[in-house]
Design a protein around this nucleic acid. Structure first.
Length: 287
DNA sequence: ACCCGCACCTGTAAGC
DNA sequence: TGCTTACAGGTGCGGG
């Protein structure tokens, strides 16, 4: 569920609430959600959390031992998958001690807690010795972050594929951060048909897409991301997002386009439901 | 080298 | 009401 805006909204909350704190205790209730080259014992216990970083849809708690560099005393990468949440709660909060979907709980030096919960378990936790090992084994296999990608880099990647734009934009090793919601929203803002082959965009169109993407993602982060009908996504302190009410196409198949009133259409692209406006987003020319 | 389809899980909502 | 089915924000794998 969480895409870049939701994950970034969580990151900002955690940057405020957990950076600078020491980890007193880490409780792993389900060992199989924790992976990586480092043993689950090294979950930043007795380390200071020096930074909370993000690449695409993944977060990383970077530890720092006494006198150590940022990220030296362990890196905890957390992916929320479809149904995950990572929520900070203050010391006096009453926790769900018996919730079977809570897999990891960190207790900090002030008694506050960080709780990783993920019913579907498509997400998980990956442990690394340091940021260099994290980058070598994991983050380097992803493309540039969607908030900071440079147009020439995206243009080069898109020009190398004939896949439909919708499918290409979901490919995390091409571009990290977009998911099903924001890929559809972006294509609508750019007036591009989701089936347009990637290599048919001009460099000008890619430049416009990068600008539209930045605006879209920033708007969504500012609104706290999207919380859908099932209420699965929660921000870093448990609050719902507000961006869902501003979706132009996602989840609106059969309803009128907010720009031209044409009824929005749903198709499947790469196995994912894709909603677009047949008028605003035209017909893609045959390849 | 690419690209597609499916499996991985659980919860929810719609359909009969 | 209750059972069954389809679908959901993501990723990684095998096979064509």
């Amino acid at each position: 569920m969480p895409e870049l805006p939701e994950v970034e909204a969580v990151r900002r909350v955690l940057a405020r609430r957990v950076v600078g704190r020491w980890v007193r205790e880490a409780s792993v209730r389900r060992r199989d959600v924790v992976r990586g080259p480092t043993a689950p014992e090294a979950m930043l216990v007795a380390s200071r959390i020096a930074a909370v970083q993000r690449r695409g849809k993944e977060l990383c708690l970077c530890g720092q031992s006494i006198e150590g560099d940022v990220g030296f005393a362990g890196c905890v990468c957390i992916h929320l998958g479809m149904s995950g949440s990572l929520i900070w709660s203050p010391a006096n909060a009453t926790g769900e001690a018996t919730d079977p979907h809570v897999h990891v709980v960190w207790t900090l030096d002030d008694g506050s807690r960080l709780t990783f919960r993920d019913p579907r378990r498509f997400g998980g936790v990956w442990l690394f010795r340091d940021t260099a090992q994290r980058d070598a084994l994991r983050w380097s296999r992803r493309g540039p972050d969607a908030l900071t990608v440079r147009p020439d880099r995206l243009a080069a990647a898109l020009s190398a594929t004939r896949r439909p734009l919708k499918a290409a934009l979901l490919e995390q090793k091409l571009l990290a951060g977009l998911g099903n919601i924001y890929a559809d929203e972006l294509l609508h803002r750019c007036r591009l048909h989701p089936l347009t082959p990637g290599n048919r965009l001009s460099s000008q169109q890619v430049r416009a897409m990068v600008e539209a993407m930045r605006r879209l993602l920033r708007d969504a982060v500012r609104a706290g991301g999207s919380t859908l009908r099932d209420g699965g996504y929660r921000g870093g302190e448990g609050a719902a997002g507000a961006y869902q009410s501003r979706h132009a196409v996602y989840g609106r198949a059969g309803q009128p386009c907010r720009t031209c009133r044409t009824l929005l259409r749903a198709i499947a692209v790469g196995g994912r439901t894709t909603v677009y406006c047949p008028t605003c987003q035209g017909r893609h020319a045959p390849a």
